[in-house]
Design a protein around this nucleic acid. Structure first.
Lengths: 368, 368
DNA sequence: TTTTAGCACTCTTTCTTCATGAGTGCTAAG
DNA sequence: CTTAGCACTCATGAAGAAAGAGTGCTAAAA
């Protein structure tokens, strides 16, 4: 059933006001709003109806109204005005992101802090790498007495390495042979196929450096396995305590505790959805302790097949318009940053590398 | 001035009891303790004296006594009984640590959670890598069309790499030359010496692959610079809210907020001290918002010159004996783990790598 | 001389009671 | 259909009273 325009307007006003004040809002307060041209009595009637329809609720008989979960839902889906980021806001978000973020896991950590700061709410940030990488190429470098560096180039363009120290004298030629064997036998394989038989076969053809094989295979398998997975950071938890709804310590503790641990298990569910911003209002959250807490999350692409996710946790009464706007902008800026990498340049250097600018302008150097 | 034995006993009892109950303790409660053979009146007199001596304080005229900061100090330094970890406790700590911890930064994160769990308090964990690493060796690997892998071996045995993609045809020989030049000119240098002049010089002798030089140098400098520094994780913040002293939301928020940010700046100061466990009681903390909060920290060696640090934050009334015991044990176990690395083994594989089992510490692979 | 019992006194804590005021629902008039 | 008016409900806060815990001091007991 459709709501009348006036009902919508009232509902929107109630939510807006409640977001600001965190106190139940009464008919009079609404009636006094600048562009509300009805008396408090009329508003009262509308509010009574909105209440029976389930969009508002009353803490007790003679208190004002508070939006219900479905009230928020409607607000988020249809009523809320687009929040325009001010120049100041975009600028501060941009400059926050500008700082170089080197490795993905450091990045995750920084982003969490930035988002939390930008929204003044606890934030979570995650980098998710889908499983299924394989090794594209093995390289072995002799690095002095007894030290060998193993370099794996993975199918997703990541490069990882390991320093192996063995009391074993191998020559460069031995390593050449070994890496040839490895490249022939073990590329494009998922870790499940690393059977003892395979290991055996490789070792037999590996020549002098055969004793390296178990270490290498082990490391490779472990790397491929641990490659997938999610790194999550939570930041700004203390901001939650600044909000009136969390003066109740027990409540705050429940929410914070679930952020410390269980949130992880919720992420995949939300991840399923398309890219973009998702809002989970109160009871829509699976976890019980988040029943009167909302979550806003955005997923975006990092490149190299990785996905990023940022989100904030706050009271159902959070300023959805502002928060979603900031979050989306954040995600967008991050995506952009990852797709168009900064051009590396030594500060104060020639600036002109000295090669004729050969075609292919757009070559992302990837780092992991 | 020395305290009489009886005073010490009373003081210890007060602290012990207060740690348990979080309520001011009265003379009667002490007198009723099993091995206290004086009446409440006697205790009362002693407590009065302890109060004037500054070891106890009174919240108000007719309340029991509460230990003062110097009371805690004395307790920690002299009075507290050694807490013996039960078999169960050591076992659970050990099994928690057993799980393989691959990279140092992941490790830091996990340890924070473990410690927090073991103490039921918020915990911080840090890995600190002293500055001053240099490059020991450069290697360049050709990895298919336009892709080159740069591998740096650092003076602290870490290895890092970067995939460089350039629209540039270089041969293996070019790379050999370039790496020779790099190894000759740029090893054992700290990043400050990477001047434009140096860059220039290297580029001139670099031959066909000269255009790679700026990228390489830039990356190297950045790596060396960001190498030093601390990675910190805080975990279990929500546990703080379970404690009666933090029912006061504002107080809790101040403490949590300072953990979110400023703690970092405190760490170095404590780091100065020798290895081992340090206890900072309430006002001994530099930060103002930690004035009635205590911090217990332990420093330990990770190897490769890195230092680990674990600590917990809690009310001044924390169970110092238990906490310090657990923390020290934790640190010890971690040190041990890092000095005697697990033997890598392919599950289901030969089990006998076929080499004399002497193994050097195995190096967390670093990837960028 | 040291320890203990007794007691008046202080101050927090908790419970009641009461007044206030915000906000409602309903009715009747515009 | 809208609005003014009014009785009613219920949270909130202040004020006061009673209860209880713990103290300090004094005087008696060991």
């Amino acid at each position: 059933m459709e709501l009348s325009e006036r009902k919508k307007k009232v509902l929107r006003s109630v939510v807006d006001l409640y977001i600001r004040t965190a106190e139940p809002v009464g008919s009079k307060a609404i009636a006094e709003l600048p562009d509300m041209k009805y008396s408090s009595a009329t508003i009262r009637n509308e509010m009574a109806e909105l209440t029976t329809m389930g969009y508002l609720e009353q803490p007790h008989t003679s208190a004002g109204r508070v939006p219900s979960a479905s009230g928020y839902r409607l607000y988020v889906d249809e009523l809320m005005m687009d929040y325009r980021l001010s120049v100041d806001e975009t600028r501060s978000i941009n400059s926050a992101i500008e700082e170089k973020m080197q490795r993905v896991d450091k990045m995750v950590e920084k982003v969490a802090h930035l988002v939390s700061q930008a929204t003044n709410l606890p934030a979570i940030s995650a980098g998710i790498r889908p499983a299924g990488a394989t090794v594209k190429r093995f390289d072995l470098i002799l690095a002095g007495q007894g030290s060998i560096i193993l370099v794996l180039m993975l199918s997703d363009e990541q490069v990882v390495n390991k320093l192996i120290k063995l009391p074993l004298n191998v020559t460069e030629t031995d390593l050449k042979l070994l890496s040839a064997v490895l490249n022939a036998a073990m590329t494009e394989l998922d870790p499940a196929s690393f059977t003892p038989e395979l290991l055996d076969k490789v070792m037999r053809s590996a020549g002098a450096a055969a004793s390296l094989v178990p270490v290498i295979v082990d490391f490779t398998a472990e790397t491929l396995r641990s490659r997938a997975g999610t790194s999550v950071t939570v930041a700004g938890q203390s901001r939650l305590l600044g909000l009136p709804e969390y003066r109740d310590v027990d409540k705050a503790q429940r929410v914070l505790a679930s952020m410390d641990g269980d949130i992880l298990s919720e992420l995949p569910a939300v991840m399923q959805g398309a890219n973009g911003t998702r809002v989970l209002v109160g009871p829509e959250n699976v976890a019980d302790e988040l029943k009167d807490t909302s979550v806003v999350m955005t997923k975006f692409d990092i490149g190299d097949g990785m996905q990023g996710l940022i989100g904030v946790v706050g009271p159902t009464r959070m300023d959805y318009a502002k928060i979603t706007a900031r979050l989306s902008y954040f995600a967008e800026s991050l995506s952009k940053m990852f797709s168009k990498p900064e051009t590396p340049q030594l500060p104060g250097s020639t600036g002109q590398p000295g090669i004729p600018a050969k075609k292919e302008p757009d070559n992302p150097d990837s780092k992991e």
